[in-house]
């Protein structure tokens, strides 16, 4: 991908109505996210915290992956680096061919607007906007007119099954519905990458399953690459791959297998199926 410096947003986002079907299968060796020897250190008072230490991994396009690990393991830090919200202290993060270290603050913001859709644990919808305007919010950063922004927001809401709740404000929606609106907001710009931070953390079991199912569908039906940070063992049944982190390190080999096993055991029946092959 060409660097973004000095490039304006395109007149139209590629999201079509209806949304396109599955993309042609990517070559086996294709890589969307390439994390190269990344470390992230920061100071908290007098202490230096090593949130991530020499982590390297690759994620292919069209995959649904999870970062799992105990609190303080570095999974949220890694998610922030992948989504261009933070910068590594060392190493390089390359997403869709773009080295994020080459971009300044404003260019990084523009890059996120174009290439990343974000989903948060607490939905974080704007309470004074209805569902349609909440979903259309990221489209304010494009050159699209109001009518087209609304049309695309309605399409995205149809994808998540909420096209009958267009004019509802967040406080009139259930938690599950709010999360679906947040998912619609994340896909409305048709991003290369969807990043979800504990998307089931504030939902009951039924809505959590529905949300995970919806994310799975986005990968299966529309070829979206999804990176999810989660504690939820149910996620194992929906994701293609799990990256286990502990104390800032990426677990590999037998350590990773032991971590997966521990999650399966802790979850009982929830994760009986394990991660998808």
């Amino acid at each position: 991908m060409a660097p973004l410096r000095g490039v304006r947003y395109p007149r139209c986002m590629p999201l079509a109505d209806p949304l396109p079907g599955p993309p042609p299968s990517a070559p086996e060796e294709a890589t969307l996210i390439d994390i190269r020897h990344v470390s992230r250190h920061y100071r908290r008072g007098v202490d230096e915290v090593h949130a991530l230490d020499d982590v390297s991994l690759r994620i292919a396009p069209g995959r649904f992956v999870a970062f799992m690990g105990p609190s303080g393991s570095g999974k949220s830090t890694l998610m922030n680096l992948v989504s261009g919200l933070d910068r590594p202290s060392e190493g390089e993060v390359v997403v869709a061919g773009q080295s994020l270290g080459d971009l300044d603050e404003d260019e990084l913001a523009a890059w996120r607007a174009r290439h990343v859709g974000l989903i948060f644990q607490f939905f974080n919808l704007i309470p004074v906007l209805d569902a349609r305007d909440n979903v259309a919010l990221p489209l304010l950063l494009t050159d699209l007119g109001k009518a087209e922004r609304h049309r695309r927001a309605e399409t995205a809401l149809r994808v998540v099954g909420l096209d009958h709740r267009l004019d509802h404000r967040p406080n009139t929606l259930s938690g599950g519905e709010q999360q679906r609106v947040a998912i619609a907001r994340a896909i409305v710009t048709d991003p290369d990458l969807i990043v979800a931070d504990e998307p089931t953390g504030d939902l009951d079991a039924k809505n959590a399953e529905a949300t995970l199912g919806l994310l799975r569908e986005l990968t299966d039906a529309f070829g979206k690459t999804i990176v999810m940070v989660t504690h939820d063992p149910r996620a194992l049944r929906f994701v293609d791959e799990v990256f286990h982190l502990d104390k800032g390190l990426l677990l590999e080999g037998s350590d990773a297998e032991r971590a997966s096993e521990a999650i399966r055991l802790a979850a009982g029946g929830h994760a009986s199926a394990g991660a998808r092959p």
Partner: peptide, 16 residues
């Protein structure tokens, strides 16, 4: 501040 943080995360730049 939460909403503003989310907007920035979505790509709303400093000027916006």
């Amino acid at each position: 501040s939460g909403e503003i943080a989310v907007m920035k995360a979505m790509g709303f730049g400093r000027r916006a």
